[in-house]
Design a protein around this nucleic acid. Structure first.
Lengths: 190, 190
DNA sequence: ATACTAAACGGACTATGGTCCGCTTTCTAT
DNA sequence: ATAGAAAGCGGACCATAGTCCGTTTAGTAT
């Protein structure tokens, strides 16, 4: 990405690693991916894996980045009600619904990305989500949008959503309905 | 606690372990406590530590149980507005405030207890909090109290509260104010 | 083509939570 | 007091994330 050329061996190894990681996730799931197995499958030393991605969480974030930036495009530049053009309340409702389905599709990766991080707020996508909600909440007249956005961020925590649906048997619809009720009550009627 | 006598050696070791654990937490903090160090300090085998507490999370929960049950007493049997006697809205506000201060006092232990568990909802105290809020939300006419209580549970996540205050520099007052705003808007005016 | 340098490499090593299982101790029934 | 059974014990062992550092290699300047 930066100016200084990436060495050819580095580029080759990155491709190998990414490809091997995708294979392993596809076959055994993100939970089961170990850094040793990845290094081995990619025919690369363990040190190389960690230099490239920093940590297991970093690897998961890299793996996520495609679908993630697609979702981000949606709420930042896409059509209303998710994108700009609708009222803050409608956008927040759409955002939460979108996020819930996004998490249910990429749940394993997201959980794995958040788990290894000291505070899960370090996940860049989470920061961006928070900022987005903060702006909408400010627009809607919430007194302390930053803190309120944090409450909502945790309410949409990947672990929470995935476990509600997969462990505790709550249907996605119940989650989105409840989110709608939460936002509807939270924000003053239009 | 059940009928069958606890063997005297088991009882002795439990005391040793608890005492050693409290010492270690007091001196180095809960984060820094390792199971090996605990076993060593208590002059006990590592297997004994795990048989007694099951896991690191289990140990932390045991360490918490005193202050925890005190807080639980407060919201279940204590005086209003925290305890029974006040309106659901007031009780929820008081509950959140109490929980925030409780977490700030026992944050390390709580984080450690939640971290090692598969889903942090496994922490018994968390389950109880959830149930308490569920009941109050039902009383206040929320459509899906179980799910809404889960959203609020995550909004009060120990990791969130501790990191907001200690890492992101948010004052406890801002947290409680925002919680009050959240509940006030969420629940219909009395 | 050669020599040089900075980047990249790899895998042994560490830290730590958790498991396993053969040995020891306590309790109880006789 | 003795023997047998059940509970408890301990520490070697395993899995896995992450670090360290001596060695190799790709690019570059001459």
């Amino acid at each position: 990405m930066g100016a200084p050329h990436e060495r050819s061996d580095a580029a080759r190894n990155r491709e190998r690693l990414l490809s091997a990681a995708r294979d392993l996730v596809a076959e055994f799931g993100a939970e089961a991916l170990t850094m040793d197995a990845l290094a081995c499958k990619a025919h690369v030393g363990k040190g190389t894996v960690f230099r490239r991605f920093g940590s297991r969480a970093g690897l998961m974030m890299t793996l996520l980045s495609d679908s993630e930036s697609e979702f981000q495009q949606g709420f930042m530049f896409g059509p209303p009600p998710l994108g700009p053009g609708a009222a803050a309340k409608e956008r927040l409702i759409a955002f939460g619904e979108g996020r819930i389905y996004f998490v249910l599709e990429n749940g394993e990766l997201l959980k794995a990305a958040g788990a290894a991080t000291r505070n899960r707020f370090d996940v860049p996508a989470t920061k961006l989500s928070h900022r987005h909600m903060e702006i909408l909440l400010r627009e809607a007249g919430i007194a302390d949008p930053w803190v309120m956005a944090m409450s909502l961020t945790y309410a949409l925590d990947p672990e929470r959503i995935v476990d509600d649906v997969r462990v505790r048997g709550i249907s996605p619809t119940r989650l989105t309905d409840s989110w709608r009720e939460l936002i509807t009550r939270l924000l003053p009627a239009a």
